[in-house]
Computed example of a mutant assay.
Amino acid sequence: MSDSDCDNSPKALEGLLRKRASQKGVLTKHFNYFRDTDGAELDRQCLSIKEERLRATFDRFEKLNLEICALNPDADDCDAVETKYLETLTLIKRLMQKLDDNQVVSPPPLQTMSTKLPEINVPIFVGKYSEYKPFIELFNALVDRNSSLQNVQKLFYLRSFLKDEPFDLIKNLPLQSESYTEAKTLLKDRYDNEYKITNEHINILLDLNPITKSTAGNIRVFVSCVKQQLASLKNLKHDIKSWDSILLCILTRKLDAYCNREFQLIKDNKPSVSTLIDFLERRALALENAERTQVQFPVSKAAHTVTVKDVAGATVKSAPPPLACTLCAVAV
């Protein structure tokens, strides 16, 4: 080692010690803040920023400490500082987890925005495959294509319309603009599964409740459910017309004996699902028309009093007949 190197070493060491002391002070400041306060005034994004700064500060401290130890091994000051760093990092992680666990997601106040979203109840998506496409199309129409909203606001709305597994899928993404596209991608990759969606619609048809009694209401509920599932399958580009034989076998088993027998009598040699639906709709209408509307008229006691005259010509009021009034045929 040259004489110049020896002369510069004390000055270099002194400079490094000052820099390390500065980084140590920043770490201690972070430690004291989170030790003395509960951090309740900080949101998750602020906590994330503080965590990043804490890590960067400790990285600089370690590098300076290594340079100092190379010049003077007795000047190592890492253990105590590392303990404070780890304790501070643990406190931050706990606060972030607490926010995630207790967070009640609600959309930002609409009155603060330049453009108000339409007042409409978007169905909460809970992870059912067959409901994903209707949900995301409605969300895109109301929120995603609203140019007055920032991406972070769109992400807030998206989180508010999710529950259970879909919410868990994106809840740990930081509330920042860049997370919005990632959140939509995660949902699409998870739930935009045509195979699973098709299976759900078919299973609904297979599990339809049988019509045990042919009432207009029961038939209309049955027909409505069938139409919805077939329309959804058609939107998925399935050729449902080629499924007529299979679908008819499934659906006619759901009919009560009288309804099934009547359909067998009117169908031709190549019936279709449309034929069955038309038959059921006509039967429901006929049952509605055939139902009698019972209207009860108020019957006063005086209306049923019979006036007669006795043998002396005096007027006498007698009780009504025991079975029914002969004027209105209402039993009394």
Rank of each mutant, 00 (worst) to 15 (best):
K154V: 12
R145G: 07
N172P: 01
D192S: 12
Y191I: 04
K213A: 01
R190W: 06
F161K: 07
L175H: 05
F125C: 06
Q150N: 07
V226F: 00
V126Y: 11
Y129H: 15
D207S: 14
N199W: 02
F156E: 14
N209F: 01
D144F: 10
S177V: 08
E137I: 04
L173T: 03
Q176E: 15
I219D: 04
L142F: 13
K227N: 07
Y132K: 02
I202G: 01
S130E: 14
E131G: 01
P174E: 00
E182T: 11
V143H: 09
L149Q: 07
I197Y: 03
S148G: 08
Q150P: 03
T198W: 00
T198C: 13
K163L: 10
E194H: 10
D207R: 07
P166E: 08
I197W: 08
E200L: 06
A141D: 09
R159K: 15
T212L: 13
K188Q: 12
Q228M: 14
E131A: 11
P166Y: 13
V152S: 10
P166W: 09
L162A: 06
L169Q: 12
H201R: 01
V126C: 13
I204V: 14
L138G: 11
Q150I: 10
L175Y: 03
R220A: 00
S160C: 11
N209W: 04
A183W: 03
N140Y: 05
R159N: 04
A216R: 09
K227E: 02
V143I: 14
K128W: 06
L162Y: 02
I202T: 09
L205N: 01
R159P: 11
F139D: 00
K213I: 03
Q153R: 04
R145S: 13
L173D: 04
V143Q: 05
K171T: 01
L175G: 02
N218W: 01
F222P: 00
A183K: 05
K133P: 06
S179V: 11
I219C: 05
I204D: 06
E178G: 01
L208A: 07
Y191H: 01
L169M: 10
P174F: 00
S130G: 07
E182F: 00
D192K: 10
T215H: 04
I219W: 01
Y129I: 05
V221S: 04
V143L: 10
Q176I: 14
F139A: 07
P166S: 15
K213H: 06
I211C: 08
I136T: 14
I211N: 03
P210Y: 00
P166M: 10
T215G: 02
L169F: 05
L138T: 10
F156M: 12
S224K: 11
L173W: 09
I136V: 15
